[in-house]
């Protein structure tokens, strides 16, 4: 009897495997999309302050204006300090450019570089939706949290793997570990201080970062004036980079 039904048993196994795997991946992807949506509207502008803290208490601050559209378009303009004022960085998918007013032309940069020094690198500053860059490999439920294991979709993505702890009810990230392909920890991001920014945007207003590669150093990003805004696609082009300041409203 069993022998006779062996092909059917195998077929059942194969069918279960084939159909269960995609549906699980869909759930993980859906969850990641929800997390992205809770962090940022699809198109928005905001202001951010970046603080690099040194072990001896010294700090350096940067203020920037950011505009984002869709899944893969983002531009940031430095407003403070005067030494960085007017610099802009543009991201279009995995393409990144830096424009320095004195140099006068945009140059291609890599996502792992840092335009400001400290622990945040370019891809942390020009962070796209996680779903745009990562595939969900696994989702685990751990008490009040989800633990998502993410894998970069392409080699050009700054971190090969992410481990994201997310609040189950609010669906915000709480902590993200950024790892290399060999699972070496590069840095950890901590999402804090949930704030109502108006217009239905409620999200963590502070991201703290530390890194085992820079012991004792810490970088903090504070968000302000996050608001939905629609931009033309042409704003996110290399040619427009010298004009990013014109996007800011008086």
């Amino acid at each position: 009897m069993f022998k006779k039904n062996k092909p059917l048993t195998w077929l059942t196994f194969i069918m279960v495997f084939l159909f269960s795997a995609p549906s699980f991946a869909m759930d993980g992807t859906q969850l990641l999309k929800e997390i992205d949506k809770n962090l940022n509207p699809e198109s928005y502008e905001n202001y951010r302050k970046l603080i690099n803290l040194e072990p001896d208490g010294k700090k350096k601050e940067y203020v920037m204006f950011t505009a984002k559209k869709g899944l893969d378009k983002m531009v940031a303009l430095f407003l403070e300090p005067p030494s960085e004022k007017g610099r802009s960085t543009l991201r279009l998918g995995e393409n990144m450019w830096l424009y320095i007013p004195n140099v006068g032309k945009p140059i291609r940069i890599t996502s792992l570089q840092s335009v400001v020094g400290g622990i945040f690198n370019n891809s942390d500053i020009l962070n796209l939706d996680y779903d745009a860059e990562y595939l969900v490999e696994q989702v685990e439920e751990k008490g009040n949290e989800y633990l998502l294991s993410l894998k970069a979709k392409a080699k050009t993505v700054a971190y090969d793997k992410l481990k994201m702890w997310a609040d189950k009810s609010k669906k915000f990230p709480i902590k993200i570990e950024c790892l290399t392909e060999a699972s070496m920890l590069i840095k950890t991001l901590y999402f804090k201080e949930i704030k109502d920014f108006g217009g239905g945007i409620v999200r963590p207003s502070v991201i703290e970062t530390d890194s085992p590669l820079h012991k004792g150093y810490k970088s903090i990003m504070i968000f302000a004036k996050i608001q939905k805004r629609d931009f033309k696609d042409e704003v996110f082009t290399l040619t427009f980079m010298p004009n990013v300041e014109s996007l800011r409203k008086p």
Binding site: Y47, K49, I51, V63, F65, L79, E80, P82, S83, K85, G86, V206, I220, I222, A224, K225, R248, K249, P250
Partner: peptide, 19 residues
């Protein structure tokens, strides 16, 4: 320690900076 004063980001029609 980490205050973010909104006046820091107010846009003015004129600018004068340099080194």
């Amino acid at each position: 320690e980490y205050k973010f004063d909104i006046s820091e980001i107010e846009k003015k029609p004129y600018q004068l900076a340099g080194y």
